[in-house]
Design a protein around this nucleic acid. Structure first.
Length: 160
DNA sequence: GCCAACGTTGGC
DNA sequence: GCCAACGTTGGC
């Protein structure tokens, strides 16, 4: 018997500093390896809980305008992040060994850039989005799970 | 540029 | 295993 059960897609929010990698960069490249994850909690999530076909909100952090700017999709399972072995990359990790890489990444695919940004302030103020992790004070995880309800509501807001 | 809120490191 | 010091994230 096949022990694999078909799982329904999950929903996420992923942060990026637009000065480093923006929604427009993703739109141009179509598919991009989401490298540079150097947090164990986030690594474990992408390794254990993230799968091909999952839906993602693209979030601009550390920017003039902070908030959700578009949508993308996960198009690979987690695999070793090559930048950890590259001393010239932004986040080399000399302690990580090629036989047993510490850091993983997933490939993401551009779906759409929203007609407008849904700002963090807007997310915080909307009672329908209460409990969304990114709105919580001190939330520093670059990837967080989002409920299907919240995801669909944010997309609706972006197009309103 | 400031600083609060974390996460990590390393001495003990 | 504790915890101070340090580094990073990211809103403001």
């Amino acid at each position: 018997m096949n022990t694999k059960t078909s799982q329904s897609a999950q929903y996420w929010l992923m942060k990026s500093e637009p000065d480093c990698f923006s929604i427009d960069d993703l739109k141009r490249n179509k598919v991009e390896p989401w490298d540079g994850i150097r947090n164990y909690q986030v690594r474990n999530m992408i390794r254990d809980d993230m799968h091909i076909g999952d839906h993602v909100l693209f979030y601009h952090s550390n920017a003039k305008e902070i908030g959700v700017v578009g949508e993308m999709k996960i198009v690979s399972e987690a695999y070793p992040d090559p930048t950890q072995f590259d001393s010239k990359s932004d986040h080399p990790d000399p302690k990580s060994k090629k036989e047993n890489p510490t850091w993983l990444l997933v490939d993401v695919k551009f779906i759409q850039k929203f007609p407008r940004i849904v700002t963090l302030n807007e997310l915080k103020l909307d009672p329908k989005l209460e409990g969304m992790i990114v709105t919580k004070k001190g939330s520093r995880l670059s990837i967080t799970p989002v409920s299907k309800k919240h995801f669909e509501y944010v997309v609706k807001l972006a197009k309103a």
